[in-house]
Amino acid sequence: MSDATRQVSTVDTGVEDRKTTIRLLIGLPLLCAVILGGWSIWRQTADLDDIEARQLAWGTILELTRQHIVLTLITTAVVLVTAIPAGILLTRGSFRRYSGFVTGFANAGQAAPVIGLIVLLAIWLGFNTRTAVLSLAIYGFLPVLRNTIVGLQQVDQTLVEAARGMGMSAVDVLRRVELPLAMPVIMAGVRTALVLVVGAAAFATFINAGGLGALITTGINLFRYSILVSGAVIIAVVALLVDWAGRVLEVLLTPKGTT
């Protein structure tokens, strides 16, 4: 097996090719605008009964969207400040020998259903936003950790040695050589985590932690397809926009010359 195929078969880091990235950067907002526009026209013209009108009031939807995005952002922040340092630590010195075990565990942990994690933690810690953030953070932690480790491991060791030879300290090498070179892979992990978290945040409503999932559960419980489909459409649009924001960040934070 050639090196190129082995790269793909061990881990797909989620780094997209340039052409796809550029098309998505332009295409995603347009797609979302079309979907949202279509939905708004339906919302304005549809003949809604009392329950539907209350659930689909603009104020309600904006508030649920705000909760959903806040939940996503807080969780992502928690993931970033824990997973990236952990990944850096696991590629330093004597911790390095655990990195294979940790990436293996991270891959296996991906199979744990997020809804199970949320329910288990809710039984233990109660129904609240903190529980939701914690369980979503555990879910988003793995891809960022894995990509940080893989990204740092991919850095050409001769470059690290050259930097050391130039008299840089270990911290300088990390900050000015290793992290910038690992940035495309790390950022792809961050974007993956963002997308996982924004999708899983739809389950927060099951433990009274808010978010747009409420429209789905209400739609199913009250058997109102209009609410159900509106919820699904808005969650999908929010997820696509979060993915887009992640891509913009990825392009902005990736140093020139590494792609």
Partner: peptide
């Protein structure tokens, strides 16, 4: 090729609960 990559990127972004919500009706 680029279209296939875009479709798989966009598809994986759609949350599963949202897709189920669209499928039920």
């Amino acid at each position: 090729r680029s279209a296939a990559n875009m479709i798989s990127a966009i598809g994986l972004t759609i949350p599963s609960l949202a897709l189920l919500g669209l499928l039920v009706p």
